[in-house]
Nucleic acid binder design. Structure first.
Length: 256
DNA sequence: ATGGCACGGCAACCGTGA
């Protein structure tokens, strides 16, 4: 099974690029974040032509997540369990062939001062509790998307972020480690432990040309799924296209 | 050098992103 995650930074602006990616990669699932539109504005026809249907949790202007699939999937959740009613559209969870797949867009945490940062940590706590529940239920799962966390200093280029940035603050990293310590595996690092790998390059200051990137898009998998990992690849070429997203896809292949 | 660029909304810039 091939599952890709991609923060597309507006699905309407990126529809043609996404359709091209689908045609080349043929993933079973594409998890998209920051679609930046409501369901009725979603360019579903473009993806239907490529053989994909969509499960959408949309929102006007900001956030929004969607899952594209070739087969029908069961939608398990349309928000992270425990999130406040009417909260931002940051989570959708589907099930395909006994695999639970959560698609997440974690709060950045740099806006809104201390309260904004605390909201990021609260969200990570709810994700932790949800993951713990899935492990208790002995389910196989992947939680993938834009985590907005660089787990270690090896996960961002020198000078790309201040030490006080919410993406690298110790509390953010501790919350990410807490997910790992549940027994989850960072799929990319499991297969490429020492490579310099980034999934985001800012539009500003020639970050792409200077390779000043961040690794903030992650796929965490449950123990049995970690043993089925066949390949995990960063589709870096997507950053070099005309009018690209500032993020690139991470593509995970699971055997068995 | 703490700003640069891109997005949506909505019709001039502004909030947000990372």
């Amino acid at each position: 099974m091939k599952i890709a995650t991609w923060n597309v930074n507006s699905v309407r602006t990126r529809a043609a690029l996404v359709a091209d990616f689908l045609a080349r990669e043929q993933p079973d699932l594409l998890l998209m974040q920051e679609i930046k539109c409501e369901a009725h504005q979603f360019p579903g026809d473009v993806f239907e032509a490529a053989g994909y249907r969509a499960a959408i949790v949309g929102q006007k202007s900001y956030n929004g997540v969607a899952v594209l699939s070739r087969e029908a999937v069961d939608i398990r959740e349309r928000a992270l369990p425990g999130e406040a009613e009417g909260s931002a559209s940051r989570y959708i969870e589907v099930e395909l062939r006994d695999l639970i797949v959560g698609n997440l867009y974690l709060p950045n945490g740099n806006s809104g001062g201390d309260e904004g940062f605390r909201a990021k940590l609260d969200w990570m706590g709810k994700l932790h509790d949800h993951a713990a529940g899935l492990l208790d239920a002995d389910r196989d799962f992947m939680l993938a998307g834009d985590y907005n966390v660089c787990p270690t200093d090896a996960d961002y280029a020198k000078g790309a972020l201040a030490a006080t940035d919410a993406l690298v603050r110790p509390e953010s990293r501790a919350a990410f480690r807490a997910l790992i310590w549940l027994g989850l595996t960072d799929a990319l690092r499991a297969l490429q432990p020492t490579e310099t790998l980034y999934t985001f390059w800012d539009y500003q200051a020639g970050a792409w040309q200077r390779d000043r990137g961040l690794r903030i898009d992650h796929a965490l998998v449950s123990p049995r799924v970690s043993e089925r990992l066949e390949s995990v690849v960063v589709a870096k070429g997507e950053r070099d296209k005309v009018q690209p997203s500032d993020h690139v896809p991470v593509v995970v292949v699971i055997g068995g």
